[in-house]
Design a binder for these strands. Structure first.
Lengths: 136, 136
DNA sequence: GTATTCCTTGACGCCGACGTCAACGCAAGG
DNA sequence: CCTTGCGTTGACGTCGGCGTCAAGGAATAC
């Protein structure tokens, strides 16, 4: 199959495939007329790349999976190098999620505080101050 | 104060300050010799920007806070536009954290599965299969 | 005077994963 | 023959937030 068909079947673009080839990730055989020629195996490699990309893996990080598949293994993650990337990625995700979660808490707190102060300034007077048994 | 001092006091670089000015975010007065001149108020503005940047806000998203401070309000988030950015950012953070969390779960599951399959292939035979009361 | 350190503007570099355009070749249908 | 629609390579553009020179002026120390 040619580049356009592969791109369409994988839900990507020809530009992307040429880019992968330029990175040495997905080299293509060539037909007599110079056209790139792909088979079903290439589609599988490409699907592996795309899946990991969707997970947010860097392109380089997909390489062990692709190599693993091309080495004849049943799955891209059947090789130790792939597992290492999984583990690294998990640690990275945990760190990122942790940071974002604490940022979310901070921002949420700031918003709550700012909203309080705003509602305390707007109406007629310092605030309703609710009906607490304080200083009358 | 001049640009170097402001940068140092804010823990950033002169390049960053010039960049902010080029974006119209933190314009500077000029001394007679052409040097940029800042005061304590500018430091406050800059600190506001840096805080939000550390939270992951885009530079443009800090603009309402800076404008708010410059308008004389006690805090950068004392204005409705700032609160709107807070809310937008919270939604964005929630969406991102959600995506990352589901990706983390996916990757974790893939790792577990791949590790299982690896350990089932390596040793002498299909697996130890533990000592369960099964088919002897 | 001169050495040092600050300041000025301008402009290119970087990063990743492509998008987009240019200018061309090749194959097939009418 | 001509058009249409694939393919080819090459090269520049994108985005954000600066880093990193380069070439020069200004203020201070000695």
């Amino acid at each position: 199959m040619r580049i356009g068909e592969l791109a369409e079947r994988a839900g990507t673009t020809t530009r992307t495939l040429r880019y992968y080839e330029s990175r040495g990730l997905l080299p293509a055989r060539r037909a007599e007329n110079g056209y790139r020629s792909y088979d079903e195996g290439d589609l599988r490699l490409l699907q592996q790349i795309r899946t990991l990309q969707d997970f947010g893996f860097d392109l380089e990080e997909t390489r062990p999976f692709v190599d693993c598949l091309r080495a004849g293994h049943p799955a891209g993650d059947s090789c130790p190098a792939s597992l290492a990337v999984y583990r690294y990625k998990l640690a990275e995700l945990d760190a990122l999620i942790g940071r974002l979660t604490s940022v979310r808490a901070e921002v949420g707190a700031q918003l709550a505080r700012a909203e309080l102060e705003a509602s305390a300034d707007l109406p007629g007077g310092p605030a309703p101050r609710c009906e607490l048994g304080g200083q009358p």
